[in-house]
């Protein structure tokens, strides 16, 4: 029976992992009383569902529908004036959800906050472009790579892939070498679908050897002219070794015994 491979995550995996290996986890600390982060959590109030400190950085879990209000509070009353990164993680296979995160920076306090929220597949989030200009491209990238729609975005359009691309490449269900649409994209676009037969499929195997290709491959002992048709097999050519190199000294005519 063929080995079952899960279809909800077709990303490349390592060939071997130790059965007893446990991935190390970053320790989570409580938010200390009286610290800067305690004020941040207090300012967010009940909007912060869960909050802890990881490597000196506050992580706040919120409801996805409140993302705009939370970021507005952080920007206007806590001094987080920069949104340095915003993206998503595909947990569809595990939890049926996307995890979205916003990475915020407070310049005057030199503190960082990560705001994390989760949305179901097909749900949209509210754009934060009115708060942070950097969110414009980041949200377009989220849309391009995961297919997550962003409400009230000024110009929601694919940013990296071509406009007529099908599929969202950062989903776990998207194979790394691309689906059928991706593998024929340039051929279909430039020449048309009827040229698929002329050009042929992509060669994804770097060590591929074509048995009947006599233009690029030859077999020692079975040499044929360049470009010859060998679909019926080729004749064996005995390999001729140099006589001067392979001299059999054990069968020399000189006999040591006679010389004595």
């Amino acid at each position: 029976m063929r080995k079952y491979t899960p279809k909800d995550n077709v990303q490349g995996k390592s060939y071997y992992t130790d059965r007893f290996w446990v991935a190390p986890r970053v320790p989570r600390h409580e938010v200390e009383e009286g610290s800067h982060f305690a004020d941040v959590v207090k300012a967010l109030g009940r909007k912060a569902k869960e909050s802890y400190v990881e490597i000196g950085q506050l992580v706040v879990h919120i409801k996805a529908s409140e993302n705009f209000n939370v970021l507005k509070t952080l920007k206007e009353s806590c001094g987080y004036t920069q949104c340095s990164e915003q993206s998503a993680v595909d947990y569809l296979a595990k939890d049926g959800e996307f995890e979205l995160f916003y990475q915020l920076l407070n310049i005057s306090e030199a503190k960082r906050v990560r705001v994390v929220c989760r949305i179901k597949k097909g749900e949209a989030i509210e754009s934060v472009v009115p708060l942070f200009k950097s969110a414009n491209f980041a949200e377009r990238e989220i849309f391009d790579m995961f297919g997550i729609k962003v409400n009230n975005h000024p110009f929601l359009k694919r940013i990296l892939m071509p406009d007529d691309w099908e599929g969202h490449p950062l989903l776990k269900t998207y194979p790394m070498i691309g689906d059928e649409f991706a593998s024929w994209y340039e051929v279909d676009k430039i020449f048309g679908k009827e040229y698929r037969d002329v050009i042929g499929p992509e060669n994804r195997d770097p060590a591929r050897i074509d048995r009947y290709d006599t233009k690029r491959f030859s077999r020692v002992g079975y040499e044929v002219p360049f470009g010859a048709d060998i679909s019926e097999g080729e004749k064996e050519n005995p390999i001729e070794y140099s006589e001067t190199v392979l001299v059999d000294y054990t069968k020399s005519s000189k006999q040591l015994d006679e010389r004595r």
Partner: peptide, 9 residues
Amino acid sequence: FNTYATVQG
């Protein structure tokens, strides 16, 4: 670049 976005030759 054995990926979805690169022309293979």
